[in-house]
C-alpha cells in the first residue's frame, strides 16, 4: 500500500490527530466515555495504520519490538506498583486515598496512574500482536 501517495499524505496528516484523540480519550475518561483501555486501543490502531501505510519496517523503526515488549511489562508494573504504594503507605493494596492528603484527590491520582499503566500495556500489546501477525513471512 505504501506506493499510494494520497494515502501516505493523508495518513501522515491524520496520525497526530489519532494520537491526540487517544490522549483525549485517556484523560477525559473521568468525565466521559473512555479510559486507558480505549486510549490504548486507539494508540495501537494508530500504530497499525502507520504500519499498514508505511510498511512494517518503518513502523518497527518507530516502535521496535523489544521496546514494545518492555512497555508491555512496564504497564503492568506501573499498575501494580501504584497499588503497592498504597500498601507501603500503610493502607490496603490498591487504596489510592493515601496518595494525596485529600482521599478523593488521592483517588483521582491513583486512577490517572493506573489508567496510564493500562494505556502502556494495551497499546503495546495491540501493536505487538499486529506486528507478529503481519510480520510472518509466507
Amino acid at each position: 500500500m505504501h506506493d499510494h501517495a494520497v494515502l501516505r499524505v493523508v495518513s501522515k496528516l491524520l496520525m497526530p490527530f489519532i494520537f491526540l484523540f487517544a490522549l483525549y480519550v485517556q484523560f477525559h475518561g473521568d468525565f466521559g466515555p473512555g479510559g486507558g483501555f480505549q486510549a490504548g486501543v486507539i494508540f495501537g490502531a494508530g500504530m497499525i495504520l502507520y504500519a499498514l501505510i508505511f510498511g512494517l519496517k518503518a513502523a518497527r523503526k518507530v516502535a521496535p519490538l523489544h521496546y514494545l515488549r518492555a512497555q508491555l511489562s512496564l504497564g503492568v508494573l506501573l499498575y501494580a506498583g501504584t497499588g503497592i504504594v498504597g500498601l507501603v503507605q500503610g493502607s490496603n493494596y490498591l487504596d489510592y486515598s493515601v496518595l494525596a492528603h485529600d482521599p478523593a484527590h488521592g483517588q483521582e491520582y491513583g486512577i490517572m496512574l493506573i489508567e496510564m499503566g493500562v494505556l502502556l500495556t494495551v497499546s503495546s500489546a495491540m501493536t505487538l500482536i499486529f506486528y507478529l501477525f503481519a510480520g510472518q513471512d509466507h
Binding site: 473521568d30 490498591l94 489510592y96 478523593a104 483517588q107 493506573i114 489508567e115 500495556t121
Partner: peptide
Amino acid sequence: TDVPNVVTSVLASYRGYDTLGET
C-alpha cells in the same frame, strides 16, 4: 473519588483489582 463517570470510578477504583487482572 471526584470522578463523575461512575464506570471509570468503579472500573479503576472500586473494582480496580479486576482491571489489574484485565491488564
